Amino acid sequence: MKAWIALTAALLATPAAAQDVALTFDDLPVHADLPAGETRLGVLARIVGALADAGAPPSYGFINGGGQAERGGAEALRVWRAAGHPVGNHTWSHQRLTEAAGFEAEVVRNEATLKALGGDWRWFRYPFLDEGATPQLRTAARRILAARGYRVASVTLTFDDWAWNGAYARCLAKGDTAEVARLEAGFLAAADDSLTRAKAMSRQLYGREIPLVLLMHVGAFDARMLPRLLALYRERGVRLVSLPEAMADPFYKDELKAAGTPAPATLEDAFAARGLAAPPTTWSAAALEPVCG
């Protein structure tokens, strides 16, 4: 722990070099409950607008095609694509991977929607980031993805942004503006801490800062906070890059081939592979569950 604290302190004291980060968004077009007056189309439009204002490159949105059935879902996907942002496969209905045949059916069923939206859509992200409970299931899923030409979209930067969306909807319903302000501050603090943590982990493992792939979601609170989050990243020396550009780094080489590796390409798993304990996080998704409950 002392070594970790010293490394983090040294990183913070070092003049900030550009840190490449690829923005990715899961659960298009439907994620979390919406506050009163919000729409799926409105959420996606605000996210698209924030990305444009920040000059972000095309950012992958991983879709569950079944979400189109919700009012405004299909139109929201068209808005995303019209803005030049590509889509990838997140399965049809966001089912957890429990057996290979059902997993393949979910992947294949989603492809008609992806083809209709166009672009380079052969990128895949696992629902719940769950790659299977056994090595055999993980290998079977990877073989399915490789046979269908997919690359796996890694996640090396996350602060559990999804957990703020439910709390935000509940607080708005109660008219608790003070708690909303606390949620805003906590969201930005978690994002800042997660970036510092990932950079320090990368430097400890590899002596350099690898390009990071950030996981976000298309929730109402994400849409509210995205302009401030991107401004924070600019202050921290982040350079926004595309997913293919970030994952061209050697760290991700097996994901690009959907290779049957024993563990996902995450910094936490890289720590575990070396027998090291990953540093603790400063945020807690569970702590948000009772907020405005």
Results as ranks from 00 to 15, higher is better:
V180Q: 01
S194W: 01
E184R: 15
M201T: 07
L195Q: 03
K174T: 09
F221Y: 05
L195K: 05
L188M: 10
A200G: 15
D193C: 05
T196P: 00
A181W: 07
S194G: 05
G219V: 06
R182A: 08
A198E: 13
R182P: 00
G219T: 04
E184V: 05
T196I: 12
F187I: 04
P211H: 10
T177N: 12
A185K: 14
A198G: 03
E209I: 14
K199H: 11
L188A: 06
S202E: 08
A190G: 07
L188Q: 04
M201F: 10
A178W: 04
L214Q: 10
G186V: 02
V218I: 12
T177L: 15
S202M: 08
D192W: 06
L214K: 00
T177R: 15
A200Q: 04
L172N: 02
E179A: 06
F187Y: 15
K174L: 15
V213A: 13
H217W: 03
A200F: 05
G186H: 03
S202L: 09
A190C: 08
L212S: 11
T177V: 14
G175R: 05
K174H: 14
S194D: 07
A178S: 13
S202W: 06
A185Y: 09
A198I: 05
L205S: 08
R208D: 12
G186L: 02
G186T: 03
G175P: 04
K199I: 05
D176E: 09
S194Y: 03
E209S: 14
E184G: 10
T196W: 11
A178D: 14
E209T: 15
Q204F: 06
V213L: 14
R197W: 04
A190P: 02
Y206L: 12
S202Q: 10
R208E: 15
G207C: 12
S202V: 07
K199E: 12
K174E: 15
A198M: 13
R203G: 01
T196R: 14
R182F: 02
D193A: 15
G186Y: 02
A185H: 13
Q204W: 09
L205R: 06
